[in-house]
């Protein structure tokens, strides 16, 4: 049903590629988290500016709208790698071995199909807003202060391309699992029973006061 999942590693090529790609994915996800942080600071500046300097941040809404795609898309492959996109595992939860990985292959392939089409569609969306002959290459601008929108639109096909790479890698790993009959293949999020998933989720919230106290010492 939920969040976290476990990905095994070994020395095989697919696992090494998995970890290599994970580095990029983690970096992009961190960028997304930093954008949330920036959003928070932006509000502090805006409210502070309005209340203490009588001067609100010009184009505050425009800047929020530009930051949202960073937050929303940059972590998409990271979440797929770690099984972070939610699903119902009522059916896959009872499957095992080859049957399970065949089912995973089919649904992952369906996702890849969607993602490839979405790369095309979101690129077209970017392309309509981009014109090298225009000032700032812009053919679409924000409502209030008129900043170009093409950079934000470009983030979508970029993030989806990383996701496509991740999906191809997972498909490859599933093919290996099907051919070898492995019970717990590497480089893919394993289907865990709900209780294990919950335990992992809970581990993210280990008593913070203790931890920080230790950290402070």
């Amino acid at each position: 049903m939920a969040g976290g999942s476990q990905v095994l590693t070994d020395d095989s090529l697919v696992s090494r590629l998995d970890r290599g790609l994970l580095k990029l994915e983690t970096l992009l996800a961190l960028l997304s988290g930093l954008a949330v942080f920036a959003l928070m600071m932006l509000a502090v500046v805006s409210v502070g500016g309005r209340n203490f300097m009588g001067q609100p941040l010009p184009g505050y809404v425009d800047w929020i709208e530009q930051a949202m795609p960073l937050i929303a898309f940059m972590g998409i492959a990271y979440a797929q790698r770690n099984g972070g996109h939610i699903r119902m595992d009522l059916v896959v939860g009872v499957l095992k071995g080859r049957a399970l990985y065949l089912a995973e292959f089919v649904t992952t392939f369906a996702i890849l199909l969607l993602v490839v089409l979405m790369i095309w569609g979101s690129w077209a969306h970017f392309d309509r807003s981009f014109d090298p002959a225009m000032p700032m290459w812009s053919r679409d601008s924000s409502m209030d202060i008129g900043i170009p929108i093409w950079p934000a639109k470009l983030l979508v096909p970029v993030a989806l391309s990383v996701l496509a790479a991740r999906l191809i890698l997972q498909l490859w790993a599933y093919v290996q699992a099907i051919s070898t009959g492995a019970e717990t293949p590497v480089a893919v999020p394993l289907v865990l029973d709900a209780a294990t998933v919950a335990a992992m989720e809970a581990s993210h919230v280990t008593d913070p006061t203790e931890e920080t106290r230790k950290g402070a010492r």
Binding site: G3, T26, A29, L30, S32, G33, L34, V36, F37, I71, A72, F73, M74, G75, I76, Y78, A79, N82, G84, H85, I86, H204, P208, T209, E211, T212, R213, G215, A216
Partner: peptide
Amino acid sequence: AMYRGMRWPQLRDALLETAKLSTMIFTIIW
């Protein structure tokens, strides 16, 4: 949290978890 001793490693974790959950929600949304 800063006052209570949160530093970059903890903040980095918090940001990554926020990113993961946000991305999950936004992906469902679109």
